[in-house]
Design a protein around this nucleic acid. Structure first.
Lengths: 191, 191
DNA sequence: ACAATTTCTTAAACTAGTTTAAGGGTTAAA
DNA sequence: TTTAACCCTTAAACTAGTTTAAGAAATTGT
């Protein structure tokens, strides 16, 4: 629980009341590698804080291929906002790629915090704004750079994740096939 | 000003105090076709509500090509959240593609509303969540469909914009060249 | 420690989308 | 009402990235 309190210090720090209100509503869970915390068709019920481990969020296209939208590691939040808010079936899978520990808060509890402790409205507004920025940069990059450049900047931006993830997953994140990533890597290596 | 009040009715409706606090902080501006309300390198100063007209938000790659991230028409919001929040130079251009009318609120005034009228924290949280969902769906689609499919679904999703925009702009939004869009269109027509 | 599964690489044939070029059509401003 | 700027289309040559296939290497569960 310490981690998540420290996490909020980066935004508007919580007072004791707010800390208490938050912590009694968080449920800790352990998640195994390859275990799903959300599957396509489910209605997403939780906003989730990752204490340790790593998750991938992906969609599956009509030919069955997976496309990684994002990775989420320690001290970051994950959910399907679309499904959580609109209470409609998710189009996404969220799967642990390492043994992980999470803190989850249900939609009802989160709504309770929003209406009774306005600071949560503020903090989650900023958290989501940060995620919006991340996504916008990713989209811009996807349109305006080659796969080679995207791989370079992935390595720079997530030096930490690059070691922990199989190349198949990175390829899916970059929007290319693992075979082509392999080619990029061998070109890179010969320099 | 009526429009924007009605707009908030879709979220948590504003009471008279809040309406007043908002409207005295909004500045109305007319913007000509091809006029910028944000240019690369600028620090974005406003959160903007589009009363009428239409804007494109795009980035320019190292070879000078434009890539449209999104279009924003009536009764929608536009800004560069990244630049506005972090006060760093924007990577984006926001340009009117029709003569337009906007209501702008400065960062300082918006922050004032956030801290003194918590309902704005709430409402803007939800507005940004909706924009996040939009962007996420767009990214997923970009990865998992062909240009042909993307064009089809653009026509479905924005029947309204399809007539108002030149094909060059649509191509840039779809992430393809105008020449290839032209090919897609002629294939479509021959069916 | 072993068997099973997943992952990585290479290479050849292929394809979706780009580039370059050129002609004709439309819009907008002087 | 002419000129400039932009827009749309077609077509041929090209290229970034895919597909298919197959073998070797690394991880993982038991």
């Amino acid at each position: 629980m310490e981690n998540i309190i420290k996490h909020f210090d980066k935004y508007l720090p919580l007072d004791d009341n707010e800390k208490q209100a938050l912590t009694i509503r968080l449920v800790e869970r352990k998640v195994n590698r390859k275990q799903y915390i959300l599957q396509e068709g489910d209605i997403c019920k939780y906003f989730i804080y990752v204490v340790e481990g790593c998750f991938k969020t992906y969609g599956v296209d009509h030919s069955g291929k997976e496309h990684n939208l994002l990775f989420t590691a320690e001290d970051d939040w994950i959910t399907d906002i679309d499904s959580l808010h609109k209470e409609r079936p998710s189009k996404l899978f969220i799967e642990a790629i390492e043994p992980s520990k999470i803190l989850q808060i249900s939609k009802g509890d989160l709504w309770y915090l929003y209406t009774n402790y306005p600071k949560f409205d503020r903090n989650f507004r900023v958290i989501i704004e940060d995620k919006y920025i991340e996504l916008q940069n990713r989209l811009l990059q996807t349109f305006s750079t080659t796969a080679y450049e995207r791989y370079e900047s992935f390595l720079e931006q997530y030096p930490n994740l690059a070691n922990r993830l199989p190349n198949t997953q990175i390829a899916s994140y970059l929007g290319i096939t693992p075979e082509f990533l392999s080619k990029i890597r061998s070109e890179r290596a010969s320099k």
